[in-house]
Computed example of a mutant assay.
Amino acid sequence: MKKLSLLLTLSVFLASPLFAVSYPPSVQEPVYLKEDDVMTTGTKVHMFHSGTQDVRNASKTGDILTIYREYPPDLGVVTKQTGKIKVIGTIGDYYFEGHVIEGFAQPGSLAMKGTTACIITTRLKQK
């Protein structure tokens, strides 16, 4: 019985690396993210920030923020500048309203000025 158990355990142990699959991270953004709600020049957006005084002092109405996207988004090994956003107002304590003035943005992209960043959350729905 011990020999049979040892033989089965050994065969599983030796065969398991043959079935393991590993994929290297891609440096290009997946297709499903490229098609997901791309906000181009002229689109108004909401940008979430921490609400701290540092962010409020760094970003004011009229400031231009640079948009960055990470490739691949979950690993963050490479960042790419994709456009610029102009801050056109504030919405409550935690949101800026912005206007894409160059390039494009997507939900989850970062809008940065210096060392402060906002997360682009949604497109502003036109009424």
Rank of each mutant, 00 (worst) to 15 (best):
L65N: 07
L65R: 01
L65F: 02
L65C: 11
L65Q: 03
T66S: 09
T66N: 06
T66Y: 07
T66P: 02
T66D: 00
T66K: 10
I67T: 07
I67A: 02
I67R: 00
Y68W: 12
R69H: 14
E70G: 04
E70V: 08
E70F: 14
E70D: 12
Y71D: 11
P72E: 10
P72F: 06
P73Y: 11
P73S: 14
D74T: 13
D74C: 12
D74L: 15
L75G: 06
L75Q: 15
L75K: 15
G76Y: 13
G76F: 14
V77M: 15
V77W: 14
V77I: 14
T79E: 15
K80S: 12
K80W: 15
Q81T: 15
Q81H: 03
Q81I: 12
T82L: 07
G83W: 04
G83C: 05
G83K: 04
K84M: 07
K84L: 07
K84N: 10
K84V: 00
K84Y: 07
K84A: 09
K84I: 01
I85K: 04
I85L: 07
K86G: 03
V87H: 00
V87Y: 01
V87K: 01
V87R: 02
I88E: 03
I88T: 05
I88G: 01
G89I: 07
G89A: 09
G89S: 06
T90I: 13
T90M: 10
T90A: 14
T90D: 12
T90G: 01
T90W: 05
T90E: 12
I91H: 01
I91V: 13
I91A: 08
I91R: 11
I91L: 13
I91Y: 11
G92I: 05
G92Y: 07
G92L: 11
G92D: 08
G92S: 09
G92W: 05
G92T: 08
D93L: 10
D93K: 14
D93Y: 00
Y94T: 11
Y94K: 13
Y94M: 02
Y94F: 13
Y94S: 02
Y95C: 04
Y95M: 09
F96P: 10
F96Y: 15
F96N: 05
E97N: 13
E97K: 13
E97A: 09
G98F: 03
G98R: 06
G98V: 03
H99N: 13
V100R: 03
V100F: 08
I101M: 08
I101P: 05
E102S: 11
E102W: 01
E102Y: 06
G103F: 01
A105L: 04
A105M: 05
Q106S: 12
Q106L: 07
G108H: 03
G108F: 04
G108W: 01
G108V: 05
S109T: 09
S109C: 09
L110A: 09
L110R: 04
L110I: 03
L110N: 08
L110T: 07
A111L: 05
A111M: 01
A111Q: 05
A111H: 02
M112L: 09
M112P: 00
M112W: 00
K113V: 00
K113G: 06
G114P: 00
G114V: 10
T115P: 03
T115K: 12
T115I: 10
T116N: 11
T116R: 12
T116E: 11
